[in-house]
Structure formats: C-alpha cells, structure tokens
C-alpha cells in the first residue's frame, strides 16, 4: 500500500519537476538576471565605507580611538568614498554615452529598414533583398542604384 503511495508521489513529482520546462509562459527565453551590476557593486562598496565611517565616529565618541587616529582614518575613508563615487559617475557617464550610441544606431537601422522594401526588391524575379545590393540575391540580375 505504502509502496504504491511512494510510486504515485514519485510520478507526481516528476510532473512537478518537468512542468517549468514544458510551460510556454515566457517562451522559454527568460534569462536569469544578474545578481550584481558593476554600478551596484560600486554602490555597495561605498555603503561599506559609510558603515566603516559611522563605526569610526562611534568609536571616537566611545573614546576607543585617539584623535590623531580618528582624523587620519576619517580622511582616508573619505578619499576612498570619493574615489568610488568618481568611478560610479564615470561608469554612469560611460553608459550614457553607450546609450546615446545605441540610440543612434537603432535610429539609423530603423531608417534603413523603412527604406528597404521600395529600393531593394528585384524587378525581374520579385525577390525582396533585405540589404542594399548591386545584384539580386535570388536571380543575380543587376539592380538599379538606390
């Protein structure tokens, strides 16, 4: 009896395990998101520095640490945070430039695409060439210049 139950449960679990593979919910193309982008990593490193600074402040108030140590460490933490902040801004600027270039490329492509059907269709065989060409990709007859 129990043996039968074990078999039934095992079969049910097979379905349970296989189900995500068969589901058509997301075309099966959904990609695992990254856990940490470079920007996020820089940010969390800054957070750590801030944490360190907060602790340093607390240690000074608790008189655990001497004034000279405090000043020196605080300065170097600040410098570290500033360096990380500069890197972040650099990255952002970089990605802004990337975005600009991407937009430009996309716009150009769209323009080309919009123009394509009229200019690259072969008059002889009727084949619609996807890119600007001198000769038809299907029958080889010369095409008029765009």
């Amino acid at each position: 009896m129990f043996l039968g139950l074990v078999f039934v449960i095992a079969a049910a679990l097979c379905v349970f395990v296989a189900y995500p593979l068969l589901s058509t919910q997301d075309d099966g193309k959904a990609v695992l998101p990254v856990d940490m982008t470079p920007a996020a990593d820089l940010k969390r490193r800054r957070m750590v520095v801030y944490d360190n600074m907060r602790d340093l402040e607390f240690e000074r108030q608790a008189k655990k640490i001497g004034e000279t140590d405090y000043q020196a460490l605080r300065e170097s933490y600040r410098a570290e945070a500033a360096r990380l902040m500069a890197a972040s801004q650099e990255l952002e600027r970089g990605s802004a430039e990337d975005r600009f270039i991407e937009n430009q490329v996309a716009a150009r492509r769209a323009r080309v695409k919009a123009a394509a059907p009229a200019n690259y269709a072969c008059k002889k065989c009727g084949f619609n060439n996807p890119v600007p060409v001198k000769y038809c990709g299907n029958c080889g007859s010369p095409l008029p210049k765009a």
């Binding site: 449960i9 679990l13 349970f16 395990v17 296989a18 995500p20 959904a30 990609v31 695992l32």
Partner: peptide, 27 residues
C-alpha cells in the same frame, strides 16, 4: 544547464527537483 544557458525555466526545474529530493528522502 540552467546556469550555463542562464535559463529561468531550467533553473526553476532544478529547484523543483531539489524539493522533490527532499520529499522522496522524507518518504
């Protein structure tokens, strides 16, 4: 496979297999 292909569905299936492992060992 899920890691290599970065596939959500395969990873989900692997996670479910882990739960299935637990159920079977429990039995």
């Amino acid at each position: 496979a899920g890691g290599k292909l970065r596939s959500v569905r395969i990873t989900r299936s692997a996670g479910r297999a882990t739960l299935a492992f637990f159920v079977m060992v429990t039995l």
